[in-house]
Amino acid sequence: MNELSRSAPERAASPAAEAWRMFRRNRPAMLGTAIFLTMLGVVIYGSLFGGDPFEIVWAPQTPPGEDGFVFGTDYLGRNLATGLLVGGAPTMAVGAAAAVLSIFIGVTIGALAGYYGGWVDNLLMRITEFFQVLPALLFAMVLVTLFSPSLVTIATAIGVVMWPQTARLTRAEFLKIRELEYVTAARAIGAGNGRIMWRVILPNALPPLIVSATLTVGVAILFEAGLSFLGLGDPNTMSWGMMIGANREYILDAWWPVTFPGLAIFLTVFSVSLIGDGLNDAFNPKLRER
């Protein structure tokens, strides 16, 4: 630490640059980034050139490595390698879209509650509590079934059930920051409520929100996988969760059709989690010593 600060030039780096420097030095976080970029590359390649994952190409349940099938085939004789290549796209797309939606709802509600306080806070927090009472996956299942499964409904359903935590975190940050002097200063020079909320407080609340947003992406991916596993995904789109769900009746005969897609999901979420931890450490260097 001492050496580090000595070797750094005198000029003060911006907090973001400082965080990025910390992040780059964090090996697990860089590993996570590498895994994530690899998975992303595979998914993009797969959705462009992956081929038809539903096509039956060979004898059912060919073990991995045999007859030129690196990952083997599933219970119908579909190539698992194709499924793995293609099946990441909906998972990642839905995960990302759901995370964006849930962060949007959560930050808006949390910011309004934390900034205005009083009855606004009371009302919004009661709404948040209400959504926390609903078992999220069950609620998402209901939404998806009522409005028929498509990537849009699934992403919406997941986004709608995940926001309460973001809202609570945002509210706590806003409560803390709105009392600080630079907020008072901004108010003194005549900044309006909207400007103070989004231009003054929000940028300063970003570090914990970015960390939480990263982790939200991981949870959203798991949600999508869970719904697809249950058969509530878009039936016309192959996804990792769907592959596990389709093959789960046959796990005692063939372990590979469920194992590899699960590993793919795990690796993706794992890399996201490493990135999130790395960001957390980068934004809060002090916490690392604990």
Binding site: A225, G241, I251, L252, W255, V258, G262, F270
Partner: peptide, 14 residues
């Protein structure tokens, strides 16, 4: 955090 719970269950069964 990263393990899909349904997949963990299947792995444990196997």
């Amino acid at each position: 955090y990263a393990l899909p719970v349904f997949w963990t269950g299947i792995m444990l069964i196997i």
